[in-house]
Nucleic acid binder design. Structure first.
Lengths: 170, 170
DNA sequence: ATAGCCATGTAACCAGTTACATGATTTC
DNA sequence: GAAATCATGTAACTGGTTACATGGCTAT
């Protein structure tokens, strides 16, 4: 049974390797550990958990405070996660709203276009700052080198984008 | 009536500014004009068209070859598109499969990790080549400077990513 | 004229988002 | 101990993907 894991399930199983967690805790962990690199909403988490339980990848414990269940990863869950790690990398499909708008650049009037570029600059400056903070924090904590590398990817991406933004003809 | 346009509809209305097109032609045009910057599937197109017709943004002509309809943009469609152009830029949410996997870097064994990075390098080399071709073609055609800028963004992105990939600890 | 192929359109499914209900917890 | 707040979980909806049916075109 069991086709390959989807990314959401894989992320959750990864997080559960360090111990049982409830849905809410998973949301929090995902936000912190995977953060701006891979978003994951509350609803996705709560939808995946029962599904994964059905497949035997996780096992729910006794209900806690507000009907919350702590899920524990099973041996087959660990195997599924390992298989996902070893499976080929999915393609990266950048889908950038700015580029869609820019594709219709000739329909913009100059003022709109400048505003558009300005908005993008602001957005990416903010993201850049966030990634820089993350890198600083991780450097100090001597944390996982891969988390650090991911944050550095964020920086590289934002810097490249900002540099490119300056070249757009207005 | 009419809440704001979603990105798909906006893209289609933009393309229809140059004349009536059928669903199939829209798919082709979107692929070429918006291409790797903003993907758009056949099914999305065919789902949006009747919806937009219902809102009066487009009008269907007489059925052609295989039940195909050519859609024409209406005045209110043009207004909706202009409003979209002037509306604030959506946030960019990069969602990179490589980063998700890398987030669990410590669970990979070294060999898997090298393979992963290698796959990513290949993928991004390919994308880079495609964007370079696009830029060359657009330069020669003296085409729309914004299409050119978009393709250049693709190059900047891919280059930044490749450079970063080289820094990942293996 | 017919067989195979490919473009077109459809439908069912899965992933992601938004908005809501409920019940602990905190604070005054 | 009552009111407000916030975390948790749920449900409905929108957007994106995959897989399929059908009918026109092409080549032999």
């Amino acid at each position: 049974m069991s086709g390959a894991l989807n990314s959401t399930s894989a992320a959750l199983l990864g997080l559960l390797h360090e111990g049982p967690l409830t849905g809410g805790q998973l949301v929090t962990q995902a936000d912190q550990r995977l953060g701006p690199l891979w978003t994951l909403t509350r609803s996705q988490v709560y939808r995946e958990l029962p599904t994964m339980a059905g497949r035997g990848y996780v096992r729910a414990g006794k209900p806690g405070p507000r009907a919350s269940l702590a899920y524990t990863i099973s041996a087959s869950g660990k195997r599924a996660f390992a298989a996902w790690l070893a499976s080929p990398l999915e393609a990266d499909h950048p889908r950038n709203p700015l580029l869609l708008r820019l594709g219709f650049g000739s329909y913009h009037d100059k003022a709109d276009l400048r505003r558009l570029v300005g908005e993008a600059q602001e957005q990416h400056e903010v993201s850049l700052a966030i990634h820089k903070e993350t890198v600083d924090r991780l450097r100090k904590t001597k944390a996982d080198p891969y988390a650090l590398a991911s944050a550095e990817c964020g920086i590289a991406y934002e810097k490249a984008l900002l540099k490119w933004l300056d070249t757009i003809p207005t």
